[in-house]
Nucleic acid binder design. Sequence first.
RNA 1: GUCGGGGUGGCGAAAUUGGUAGACGCGCUACCUUGAGGAGGUAGUUCCCGUAAGGGAUUGGAGGUUCAAGUCCUCUCCCCGACACCA
Length: 809
Amino acid sequence: MPLYNPQEFERSLIAVWEKEGVYKTPKLSEIASKSYCLSMFPYPSGSGLHVGHVRIYTGTDVLARYFRMEGKQVLHPMGWDAFGLPAENAAIKAKKNPLDMVPGNIANFKHQMQSLGLSYDWEKEFSTTDPAYYKWTQWLFIQFYKKGLLYKKNTPINFCPKCKTGLAEEEVLANGTHERCGTPIIKKELPQWIFKITAYAERLLEDLKLLDWPKGILEMQKNWIGKKKGVNVRFGMENSDEFIECFTTRIDTLYGVSAVVVAPEHSFAQRAVEKNPDVKKYIEKSYRKSEMEREDNTKKKTGVFTGAHVVHPLTAKKIPVWVGDYVLGSVGTGAVMVVPAHDQRDFDFANAYGIEIIPVVVPPGAESGKNNEGAYENEGILVNSEGYSGMKTEEARVKICADLTNIKKGEKTVSYHLRDWIFSRQRYWGEPIPMVYCEKCGWNPIPDTELPLKLPYTESYEPTETGESPLSAIPEFVNTTCPVCHGKAVRETDTMPNWAGSCWYFLRFAQDKRDETLTQFTDGLKKLPWMPVDWYLGGAEHAVLHLLYARFWVKALQDMGLLNFPEPFLRLRNVGMVLAEDHRKMSKSWGNTINPDDVISQFGADTLRLYEMFMAPFNMEIAWSTTALQGAHRFVKRVWVMFEKIGGLDLKSDPSLTAKLNKTIRKVGDDIAQTKFNTAVAAMMEFLNAWEANPSGLSLADTKKFVQILSPFAPFVTEKIWRDVFKETTSIHISKWPKVDINVFKDTVLTIPVQVNGKVRAMIQVPAGTQSQEEIVGIAKNNERVAQYLEGKQYKVIYVKGRILNFVM
RNA sequence: GUCGGGGUGGCGAAAUUGGUAGACGCGCUACCUUGAGGAGGUAGUUCCCGUAAGGGAUUGGAGGUUCAAGUCCUCUCCCCGACACCA
């Protein structure tokens, strides 16, 4: 064999694998032995693959390759999330239509992935932008609409004056600017399609139990859903039947209420505008603020008195109604009862406007409440609360709630932080929403036979000044007939957000058919033996949005009888970010990017893969290190040299080396299944060190096992050795993972550390059969150093079998 | 502020989950080899004292539990991420 030169064989092996169909998805014969391994699919940007992509895809690839060798049936697909803002913004920047640009980017991504040796079944490939795919995305939209999960509503949305587009809450940064362009956002009222995800809040929360996900991600989902138990309490208007409803978790503090504050978006505030010019001015001002600004804790709380009063539901006391923008229209009922003595925010507000502070809870044991410095927010005993005085807060919550319910002034309720999901985008680059509006018949979906509703090609796809979708400027698209009365009608011109495609792509991979009829499609969904995804790998930045939306779709589809499982992703594992060598994010403007193509052409794909798997735990952030990359390269070369030296010689096994090999086989397998790729690689390095020290100590069969366990990490060099040295004619990647021989494990000699007062003073060697404590202690006392410490002293003996011996004076 | 994740040599990190702290890799030092190649080998490399044998210290900091703590408990400091006036 010549010198290690990956360029000579990597490319040709890719062709061999392709020709031999090594990574073809098997027909699923037995669900118990399947493993669906999936990486979060990328949007194919023009800048090509990032070394961060390499990390996640290699991780999933190692899993897929390992399970395949373990005899499992593996589905390991890849596709493209090509709709949405990132792709569109890139297209605008390059002054190309995304329709023209995306195919080239996809080809580039695919080529790069292939040169990494990723074991995808490319027959499964598709892009969310393929009409054959979004045909079904649109069909699903229609089913959700028919199910009543989609409604259209005028909604004040965040609007970016620069990008000329509506933004989801998620796209606005904490400082009130657009996450992509940094422009301060404003509010704009637009009709939007909205998903009733809140209808699923409870089940989305409940079913987190079913998931093997990182604890932190589960926690974030839970907090995002934000279930709160409390009371909706109604404060009636003076001289009318109207009332303002407030949500509170602290109904026990009801006697401390000294004002009601409604959000500027609240209907009561809207009506107060006509009577009160100050309110009008105030609301206009708060509308110019971003939600983030309004929520800024460090700023002074503001508000304006409406001039109106409500009546306390129990005491009939007059209570002033204010508008304050620290209350958010989208939280709770959009109105709060102000209890300055027991809520810090209310306390700050009351202090700013001279509102009364009434203490109604005191700490247990205290006589009266003084609230000069701040609110007392803990539990305690009620005071100043008529018949409830003296009760514990927990008890009072139950009692007051019951009494309010009796007089129909309130009731127990559950509130969620989760809001309904705005699904419209006034953008070109997305799936057209398959709905038609007719003056007579209202909104109706287009017939199934008209799907896919194709995105028209246009010269002017940039966002419009009016905020409307670019599609609205294409009359041939807009004007149509009503599917119900066949009269004149217009199409919806909004498109779907990029989440749409990623909400069910994992189902598409799991389907067999591609050009199917409706019945074939729905029948296919009902079976889907590959689902759920067994291993889902991706970044923690998708902790809530993508994962929650996809879970929601699956649950809704299950309810429609289209799917027969409740959760899409059984196991989730996060991948850590790859930073540049200077510990900053990689960015062209910093000039610190690493192109995987360059690394592959210099060192080969195996080196790149091994390096990224080895450098740190998979879920931890790493900074790129060119010198550490050399270490991985050195390892690959040393493996190569060993096989060059040994050739196909069948040598006599050395028992200790054989034992080490078997331990390594076991560790590598165990580690892969726990996504502990770094320690798996370390174990193989350790074994290679031992083998190099004793190069003639392995039988031919054993050297083969070592190549096999390395193959998920370094698929090229191992395949090359497999075919050249061992003269194998079928791929190493479909060979059987070597069995661990437990018999060779047994060490004949045990080394036991001996401590005196917890400090290690000696190591003793004992025959493996030595069992009794007396024997061990006897051997230890014969040790010179131990004897020195023990001489003439009294001591106690602690012995943990096979682990440690401790003499305590 | 709340929640979540962290803090271990010069650096990236291991640690059988309470039992030899620092595996593996990088870097560095010395020597050998090679001779322009992002080379290879041998030995050493947590820190301090010591030629050495050996001794002492050590997992952000301070206490505690235990024969034994990186790991468990209490307090505290710092870093990263998410959410943030959530009623």
